[in-house]
């Protein structure tokens, strides 16, 4: 049993245990285990072909796993429970997949019928309001831009008020403005406590939107909060820049309290490995002033999720060689 980040509901929205999917000889993903709490936005990162979409399709009961088990919205994943699971979740695929000759409203009405929803008009209107598309309800989907189509697809995914919303590369192929709009909509859903499983290879997207992320490259490489992953992968460090290279950096940094080592990536630029950046920075500044250096900056090294991702994928590629 897991608790969501807000501790709102005791059970986990998704429990995946040792799930594996193979297509003949090819392994899409292998021995993947994780949990997602209710109200959590969970990012599933990985390079192309890592198995992200296959995982979404498996959890959406479109593909049967080769082995392992899962519970989706409290329902065990099995052939017999497929329709029940699909009634409790929604998936927004990478391609919006709209009926282009039908209007926005007609597309949503069709899906409201497929979910056997009551008060179809009200549900459609609510979904359209959620994605700010009320004024385009009567437009044929074929006349909409790619960004607007993506918003219609998101409205469609919200129709049944899903317990878990799967978003598969929701901003793939969108221009920055349209992607920003979709991010804002997802942020709004997150703030409303909707459980979201977001696959993406856009790291800034995951960092901005997700409570936790998992990095997949056929196998699950790492899972945790973005800041946790940074801490786990990278030692704490101070980035130091001076106007001119120090004549004897070893003499300045060696033996400084709290500094366990140092590197010089480029002349005039130094990375000091420290246990506590706040505690070490004043001593480093004093030592540099004492050595007559012109200090440009002393800042704590900040590793982005991208650094974490690239590091992990590179390590994984190395390990597979």
């Amino acid at each position: 049993m897991a608790t969501g980040p807000h501790g709102s509901q005791p059970d986990a929205a998704l429990v995946v245990e040792h799930l594996t999917k193979r297509f003949g000889e090819r392994t899409a993903y292998e021995d993947v285990s994780f949990e997602v709490g209710y109200g959590e936005v969970f990012g599933f990162l990985g390079p192309n072909g890592a198995g992200k979409t296959t995982m979404v399709r498996t959890l959406g009961t479109l593909l049967a796993p080769t082995s392992g088990s899962a519970r989706i919205a409290g329902i065990p994943l099995a052939f017999e429970t497929g329709a029940a699971i699909r009634g409790r979740i929604s998936i927004m695929p990478e391609s919006p997949g709209l009926y282009l000759r039908l209007t926005v409203e007609e597309n949503l009405e069709c899906f409201a019928g497929l979910y056997e929803l009551r008060d179809v008009r009200e549900r459609v209107a609510t979904a359209l309001r959620a994605v700010n598309l009320t004024d385009r309800a009567r437009d044929p989907c074929g006349s909409l831009s790619k960004g607007l189509r993506q918003r219609v697809a998101l409205a469609r995914a919200l129709l049944n008020d899903p317990a878990v919303l799967f978003l598969d590369e929701p901003t793939s192929g969108l221009d920055p403005v349209a992607a920003r709009d979709v991010h804002a909509l997802i942020g709004g859903l997150r703030d409303r406590g909707v459980t979201i499983f977001l696959t993406t290879h856009r790291l800034e997207e995951a960092e901005r939107l997700c409570h936790r992320v998992a990095i997949l490259n056929t196998t699950l490489l790492l899972i945790g909060r973005p800041d946790e992953l940074r801490e786990r992968l990278f030692t704490q460090a101070l980035d130091v820049r001076t106007r001119t290279p120090l004549p004897d950096p070893g003499g300045v940094f060696a033996g400084l309290a709290g500094v366990s080592g140092w590197e010089q990536p480029t002349p005039g630029s130094y990375v000091l490995h420290v246990a506590d950046p706040d505690a070490a920075a004043p001593a480093v500044a004093r030592a540099l002033v004492g050595a007559g250096a012109d200090i440009l900056s002393i800042v704590e090294s900040v590793h982005s999720l991208e650094d974490v991702y690239l590091q992990l994928v590179a390590e994984d590629a190395e390990a597979q060689r």
């Binding site: 479109l62 699909r86 998936i91 695929p93 997949g97 899906f111 497929l114 979910y115 056997e116």
Partner: peptide, 11 residues
């Protein structure tokens, strides 16, 4: 058209 998958992921 890519419309089959959204239908198949409904109940």
């Amino acid at each position: 058209q890519g419309t089959l998958e959204p239908v198949l992921i409904t109940p």
